[in-house]
Simulated assay, not measured.
Amino acid sequence: MQIQSGQVAVITGGASGIGYGLAEALAARGVRVVISDIRADGLAEAATALRETGAEVTAVVADVSDESSVRALAEATLAAYGRVDLVCNNAGVVCPAAPMWEQDARTWQRMIGIKMLGVIHGVKAFAPLLIAQGAGHILNTASSGGLAPLPSRTPYTGTMHAVVGLTETLDLELKQQSPNLGATVLCPGLVDTPLGRNSAALGAITPPPADAPAPSMRTLAAARGGILSPREVAEAALTAIEVDRVHTAPGAGVADRAQARVDALLSDLAAD
């Protein structure tokens, strides 16, 4: 899909982080953006900031875990612009750090509801619109945790693996409808976003005590070989969309971790 001025893009989780980076990058290309988020205050601030750059923006509060809320987002998009060309199912949260057997049911329900069903609801609401047009693209945000194991974050990595697999299948299904349709999964490494803070505000994790030492993003970046800005991740995603790639995984070390997983998988299979 070629991204062009005048097109319409919908971005869930658009008030901050990668979602806001996608909105910035798309607006810079002349795309009209519909940003959505569950946080009304953050959404309003993001819309104002984007409009100050000259972007054409519509803001819609939505809860991606609620299918009817996502359907309403699709209806609001059509009411505002009459079409949609790119759908970015980006909303997400993180989970507490604990072994799988210590993760409680509420954590699993939240991760599945937001990260997995959120993508499914987005596809169900918007894919028929793209198919009717005969052209368009869906971008699903996962994580490098969807390409390799991530101990102590099983609800997170499990749902991210699901997003990777369903996007691979979705791309094939869309191309059966039209060669001008497709899907891409975004699996970035370490990104400088407020995801942890937002997750705490939504009750997904418990924030650390105010006086507790916490590793800075720069410290984590040094340990992992670098950190990306949301805009850098967004630009990588849009590049992948334009060349019709199913996977994009920007970030230091991500390809190496994915390669190690694939090598281990193939080694196990070869032993059968």
Score class of each variant (00 low, 15 high):
Asp192Lys: 10
Gly134Asp: 03
Val233Asp: 11
Asp244Gly: 08
Ala127Leu: 06
Ser152Asp: 14
Asn198Gly: 15
Gly19Asn: 05
His161Tyr: 13
Glu45Thr: 08
Ile120Asn: 11
Gly196Ala: 11
Ala270Phe: 06
Glu24Lys: 07
Glu168Trp: 09
Ala221Leu: 07
Ala258Trp: 10
Thr219Ser: 15
Thr157Asn: 15
Leu269Met: 10
Ala44His: 14
Ala23Pro: 03
Arg197Leu: 10
Leu73Phe: 05
Val191Trp: 14
Val33Tyr: 05
Ala270Arg: 14
Glu168Pro: 04
Val233Cys: 13
Ile138Tyr: 05
Ala148Cys: 13
Leu73His: 03
Ala236Pro: 07
Arg245Met: 03
Val64Phe: 08
Leu190Gly: 11
Val10Pro: 01
Gly253Trp: 14
Ala212Trp: 14
Gln103Trp: 12
Gly145His: 08
Val8Glu: 00
Ala135Arg: 11
Ala127Pro: 00
Ser69Gln: 07
Ala222Asp: 15
Pro155Tyr: 05
Leu166Pro: 08
Lys115Gly: 12
Ala240Leu: 02
Ile35Arg: 04
Val123Glu: 08
Lys124Ser: 09
Ser16Gly: 04
Val94Asp: 10
Gly145Lys: 09
Asp37Ser: 05
Leu117Ser: 12
Val84His: 00
Ala264Lys: 03
Pro99Ala: 13
Ala28Met: 08
Leu172Thr: 15
Ser144Leu: 06
Ala258His: 13
